[in-house]
């Protein structure tokens, strides 16, 4: 009961903040509500007993990535939207396409939820702590995607350094 209440309250807050993010008049306010949104998502993870994911959510998204957004917005003065975004037709076409993609994704997830069997608790018994279970899964079942993702990040890092260096 309490868990459900928390879940719905948090979901409402997440959606509310997300709406404010896209309607906020100033980019800095939008980013602040994005941070708040990420914090509520972390709260949702805590309700689902995924403390590790919650903490990583705060650390990586709220504490890392969005700070870089804030840097960009503060240093690049965004008083007026650029010309390309003021074209109404182009914006609405893009919006329709994006929302169609999201809708298809939602439908796929719902369909999968009906078809796929109920997933048991990962990693067997409850003797593992949260972190150990995540680590175990990453290095057994999801080893290849995990290593591929780390390679991708490494390439991105090197790419950023190469781009930032003036003389090479």
């Amino acid at each position: 009961m309490g868990e459900q209440l928390a879940f719905y309250a948090l979901s409402a807050l997440i959606l509310g903040c997300a709406v404010i993010v896209i309607t906020a008049p100033s980019a800095v306010y939008a980013i602040l509500f994005l941070v708040l949104d990420f914090l509520f998502v972390a709260g949702l993870y805590v309700v689902l007993h995924a403390q590790f994911v919650a903490v990583i959510q705060v650390l990586v998204y709220a504490g890392g990535i969005v700070i870089l957004y804030l840097f960009v917005v503060m240093l690049v003065n965004l008083k007026r939207p650029p010309e390309a975004q003021r074209d109404r037709r182009r914006r609405s076409r893009l919006g329709v396409a994006l929302s169609a993609v999201v809708l298809v994704e939602f439908a796929a997830i719902a369909l999968y939820g009906y078809v796929a069997p109920e997933a048991g608790p990962a990693g067997g018994g409850l003797s593992f702590s949260n972190v150990e279970r995540v680590g175990w899964l990453l290095y057994t079942d999801y080893l290849v995607p995990f290593e591929l993702a780390s390679m991708l990040l490494l390439v991105a890092m090197i790419g950023a350094i190469v781009l930032a260096r003036r003389e090479l």
Binding site: F52, V58, L59, S129, V131
Partner: peptide, 13 residues
């Protein structure tokens, strides 16, 4: 059980 990470995460805010 993620105490240390919690401190890192909170401090980053």
């Amino acid at each position: 059980n993620v105490g240390l990470l919690y401190i890192v995460a909170v401090a980053s805010l």
